[in-house]
């Protein structure tokens, strides 16, 4: 379970904007390796082990291979010639390397985006960008409501039409098009008619009054502040390092990268900070897991020793009301049992 997604949307967005931009603009091999590693690792937290494995192996590896194969076919720069194509064009080491680099960059960005989709849900996005223009946040929210609704209604209508023998998936092209147009026409009438009621409902609840506010369920708390400072620091140092040339690299006509041979203190610092920045959600998740496990262990030992260490429990979870108390007791019992049996 990913915990980074419970942080403030601004932090989520800052992180993804940072890593995705960096991955797109800097192709220093060390940084790319770090980013790919962090992206893959984080995808295990956001997508779940099974889905992440399938996604990374079945979709990402082929993309990488295609990039490695295709680049040398169309690009022939570089000084290390490995052989020749039948048409006389050279195959160069540099073009293969650059194909690999392109592939890694593409794959990294795609993996980041798959995590982004899980973390930055629509309401977070609306919240962040609605703040700049309050009316926009409502419009975004309404659009997000309409899209699934229209999709569903379209299904209802096309099923209704299917039941009078007008199926878009059968018949000749003209018939199909006619049926499709008819469905759209029904859809438009339906949408316009029903929008009147939505407008009524908005007016009935005071829409259009002066001084409308925008409510949000997100709060910027201490945890967010600490994360923001640390992540900002790592990102800041990375940027300074890059500005000073730590990320310089060239693939044409021959491969040359700054800070690898020999390793300079500046490049080492930059790479470490970049790595930490990329890994920050993973670090947060692992730390959270560890803390949770420790808390649960101490709770269970407390229970098994005394059976009812109320003061400790209350200190940790607040004073429970009487029926909540029963539930936690029952849960505790069942947990204790499971523990005994296993």
């Amino acid at each position: 379970m990913d915990q980074f997604s419970t942080y403030h949307p601004a932090i989520n967005f800052f992180y993804f904007a940072g890593v995705i931009l960096m991955a797109m603009f800097f192709n220093h091999p060390v940084m790319m390796a770090e980013a790919l590693f962090a992206a893959v690792l984080y995808s295990f937290f956001t997508l779940g082990t099974e889905k992440a494995l399938r996604f990374n192996l079945l979709a990402m590896v082929p993309i990488l291979l295609i990039a490695v194969l295709f680049n040398p076919m169309f690009n022939h720069y570089g000084v290390h010639i490995l052989g020749y194509f039948p048409n006389g064009n050279p195959i160069t080491l540099e073009s293969i390397i650059y194909g690999f680099v392109m592939g890694v960059m593409l794959v990294t960005v795609i993996i980041w985006f798959s995590s982004y989709n899980k973390v930055m849900t629509s309401d977070k996005f609306v919240y962040l960008f609605g703040r700049m223009i309050p009316a926009l946040s409502l419009i975004l929210s309404m659009v997000l409501r309409f899209v699934p609704r229209f999709k569903k209604q379209l299904e209802v209508i096309s099923n209704g039409q299917k039941c009078i023998g007008r199926d878009v998936s059968s018949g000749n092209l003209i018939e199909r098009a006619k049926h499709g147009v008819r469905i759209i026409s029904i859809m438009i009438t339906w949408a316009l008619e029903n929008a009147i009621e939505t407008a009524d409902s908005m007016r009935a609840r005071g829409y259009g009054l002066k001084g409308r506010t925008a409510f949000s369920i997100f709060r910027f708390d201490n945890r967010d502040a600490i994360a923001a400072i640390l992540m900002g620091l790592a990102f800041g140092i990375t940027c300074i390092g890059l500005a000073l040339g730590a990320g310089a690299v060239q693939y044409n006509p021959y491969f040359k990268a700054a800070g690898i041979n020999p390793v300079t203190p500046l490049s080492l610092l930059t790479f470490i900070c970049y790595f930490l920045f990329c890994l920050s959600p993973v670090i947060i998740d692992i730390m959270g897991d560890y803390r949770w496990r420790r808390l649960r262990n101490s709770q269970e030992t407390g229970i098994s020793m005394t059976g009812a260490d109320e003061s400790l429990r209350n200190a940790m979870f607040g004073t429970p009301t009487s029926d909540e108390n029963n539930i936690t007791d029952a849960e505790r019992m069942s947990k204790g049992k499971i523990k005994l049996w296993t």
């Binding site: 629509s122 309401d123 409502l138 929210s141 309404m142 409501r145 029903n194 409902s201 908005m202 369920i217």
Partner: peptide, 15 residues
């Protein structure tokens, strides 16, 4: 109003 769907304006329950 009558129709449960038409009255809902936003995409999230809390909103």
């Amino acid at each position: 109003l009558q129709n449960p769907d038409n009255q809902i304006v936003t995409d999230k329950v809390w909103h």
